[in-house]
C-alpha cells in the first residue's frame, strides 16, 4: 500500500520544488489544450501543494480508501491545478496531462469524479464545494473517522449565496474536521473582485459567521504550513484560511492580469514562463 502518510513532505524547500513542478505542468497542459484557466490555477498552487503533500493521507492505488483525507476543489475552473497535483501524487502517468480537455479524456475541462477516481466530487458550477465538504466531514464524524476535509474556493466564488449557507452550517454543526481556503487573488473574469461585486471585508465576514479565520500569505510555504497546523488544533468550530495570492503567480507577464483568467499561454510564452519558474 503506497499510503502517503502525514508529514511525508514537511520540508519547505521540497514543497517549493513540488510547487514549481506543478506550475510547469499546469502551463504545459494548458498550452497543449489551447483553452482553460491559467490565472486561478497558478494562484492556488502553493496552498494546494501544502495541503496535499504535507497533510493529506491518501492512496493513489486505492482512491476510495475510506480513511483518506478529502480534497475538494470548489473553484473547479482551476482543474489543471488539481490534475497536475494528482499526476505528481501518482494517480495517473504524467503524459495523461497532454489530454486535458480532449475528447473522452478523464481530464475534463472542470473536475469530474466519475471520469477520474481521486476527484471527490464534480465541481465547476461555483459555490457548491463547501456544502459537499461539510457533508463529508459530518459523515466522517458520525463514523468517528479522524480523516479531515479540505476545500479550496475562489474569492470571486464566495459571491455565491450557497457559500454562506454552507458557512452557517459548518459553524452550526461545529465542524472542526474541515479546513476551508479562500484563494484571494482579487480578480474575477470581469475585473477586480471589489469592482465587480465587493465582498470585503472577507476576514470579518467569515469571522461573523463563526469561523476561525487565519490570514495567510498564500505564496509563503512556511506561513501556509503554520496556518494548517493551527487549523488542526482548532476544536469546536471550522477554520478558513484567507490566502492572499496573486493571480497568475510565478509568471511575471501573467501576474495580476484579468485577461489571463481564461486564456492560455502560446508556445513561446510557455518557454519563457518555464524559464522564469525555474529561476524563481
Amino acid at each position: 500500500m503506497s499510503v502517503i502518510t502525514k508529514g511525508k513532505v514537511s520540508d519547505v524547500d521540497k514543497l517549493k520544488d513540488i510547487a514549481k513542478k506543478v506550475r510547469i505542468n499546469i502551463l504545459h497542459m494548458l498550452t497543449k489544450a489551447g483553452s482553460g484557466h491559467t490565472g486561478g490555477s497558478l494562484s492556488a498552487v502553493d496552498v494546494a501543494v501544502a495541503i496535499y503533500f504535507s497533510r493529506m493521507n491518501f492512496n493513489p492505488d486505492d482512491p476510495y480508501w475510506k480513511d483518506r483525507d478529502r480534497f475538494i476543489l470548489s473553484k473547479g475552473h482551476a482543474a489543471p491545478l488539481l490534475y497536475a497535483i494528482m499526476a505528481e501524487a501518482g494517480y495517473f502517468p504524467i503524459d495523461v496531462l497532454n489530454n486535458l480537455r480532449k475528447i473522452e479524456s478523464p481530464l475534463q475541462g472542470h473536475p469530474c469524479c466519475k471520469s477520474l477516481p481521486g476527484i471527490e466530487v464534480s465541481t465547476g458550477s461555483l459555490g457548491q464545494g463547501l456544502s459537499v465538504a461539510n457533508g463529508m466531514a459530518l459523515g466522517l464524524r458520525l463514523d468517528n473517522n479522524p480523516a479531515r476535509v479540505y476545500c479550496i474556493m475562489g474569492d470571486g466564488e464566495i459571491q455565491e449565496g450557497q457559500v454562506w449557507e454552507a458557512a452557517m452550517t459548518a459553524a452550526h454543526y461545529k465542524i472542526d474536521n474541515l479546513c476551508a481556503v479562500v484563494d484571494s487573488n482579487g480578480l474575477q473574469i470581469d475585473g477586480p473582485v471589489q469592482k465587480v461585486m465587493g465582498i470585503a471585508p472577507i476576514h470579518d465576514k467569515w469571522s461573523a459567521f463563526g469561523w476561525h479565520v487565519i490570514d495567510v500569505d498564500g505564496h509563503n510555504m512556511k506561513d501556509i504550513l503554520g496556518a494548517l497546523d493551527a487549523s488542526e488544533k482548532t476544536k469546536g468550530r471550522p477554520t478558513v484560511l484567507i490566502a492572499n495570492t496573486t493571480k497568475g503567480k510565478g509568471v511575471s507577464f501573467f501576474e495580476d492580469k484579468v485577461e489571463y483568467h481564461g486564456i492560455t499561454p502560446t508556445p513561446e510564452e510557455y518557454e519563457k514562463a518555464v524559464k522564469e519558474i525555474h529561476n524563481g
Binding site: 466522517l140 458520525l142 450557497q162
Partner: peptide, 16 residues
C-alpha cells in the same frame, strides 16, 4: 437553505 442541503447530502453520501 435548500441548496446547501443538497450539497451536504451529496457529501454525506460520499462518506458512505
Amino acid at each position: 437553505a435548500e441548496q446547501d442541503m443538497i450539497g451536504t447530502a451529496a457529501g454525506l453520501s460520499l462518506a458512505g
